[in-house]
Design a protein around this nucleic acid. Sequence first.
DNA 1: TATTGCGCACCGT
DNA 2: ACGGTGCGCAATA
Length: 420
Amino acid sequence: MSESKYREWILDTIDSLRSRKARPDLERICRMVRRRHGSEPDRTCAELEKLIQEQTVLKVNYKGSISYRNAAKVQRRSRKKDDATLAMASRRSAVEEASHSDLSNGDSAFGPVDQDEEDLEADTSVAMDTDSNADEEGADESRDGQDGPSPGRTYEDASVHCASVRAVSAPCSPSGTRPGPGPGCSLGSGLDCATFQKAGERPSSLPPSSPRALAHNDWAYDSAVCPAERQHPGMQRDKAAVKPAIHSATSSPTALKNNMKKEDGGKVEESSISSDQLVPDYAARLDETKTVSDGQPQTLSLPSDNCTFNKKMDISSFAEAEDSLLNGGKGDEVSVKKENMSQNLLQWTVADVASYFSAAGFPEQAVAFRTQEIDGKSLLLMQRSDVLTGLSIRLGPALKIYERHVKVLQRTHFLECEDL
DNA sequence: TATTGCGCACCGT
DNA sequence: ACGGTGCGCAATA
């Protein structure tokens, strides 16, 4: 219940800030939500993170600071462009939308890059961390101070911080942004936060060196995450450079395969990356994957709210399974994976399902799944008509979702059952 | 004082 | 040329 409420509130707030030409950053979002709905910043932050995980909201590092985007809107835009494309390759398009077009990061791309592994650990955290750090810190120090206009609101900020803290880690943000070098990270006050935070993140001094980058580039937080990569300012710009590394990082087997492919292929097309700013964790991953496969089904990484490690694994495996089904199947490995996947499918929660579809490039539709409380079991029971008409989603996406995802998941699951 | 509105510059396409 | 973004400042509540 509350979740959907928060979703509305937060998306509304983001839209509102955008229309007002104000940066939809953590501080402003929390403040506005609190003002309008009385929600505490901490809670707002927590909910915001959830939305980020499911890609309902995209966290972007734009012009050196973190911003949040209404994924639905962003995608639409991109879609317009892609429309044609979409028609051609629905699946791809989906993926693209999710990750690429929207997310794509010009520079940020790198960021996303390696996240995979990290993701595994804590996707959210990763992305968040970076960002959040920025936010927090920014809020505390730089932001308040810098943004002259906004009077610092300590308390709020503070609270915000906490919440965000989890994510917070670092500093990657544009150097300029945050004055305090080290401080930011440490903040991680909250336990929660701590959890996420990964040590790794530390802020390295990033690109402060390259103010420019900061200045206008947008990179993904992710990038922030990996210090090494970020380290090279130049690299960032090159979009391409980074990716490769990233791939490698990907831990899951599937991922690995993909990565391999990519690499073999050469640099994937960084082109995809080109876009700019957005780089949600997941998105990033998607990017990679998608890039690699180019039209094929890709691995979708699940967001992991709750997400479990297993799930992650599953997902990847799942992807493979999917691949195999679609492409003709490769073999044993797949079958094994499939098993895991299916089993897990039964364990998917509503959030997992929503995350899955968000990651697959259907954030808007993911909301419908959530609204209808579709968990893994329900997903297995869904019929074509349920997807096309029962979710009140547009026919185009519905068809893609059913044909490329629901049907595949179900088929995979049942095949497995038969085997067993 | 806190919010909101918006001109304008910047960037990528 | 066009659209998206957000800073910085003025207007308003």
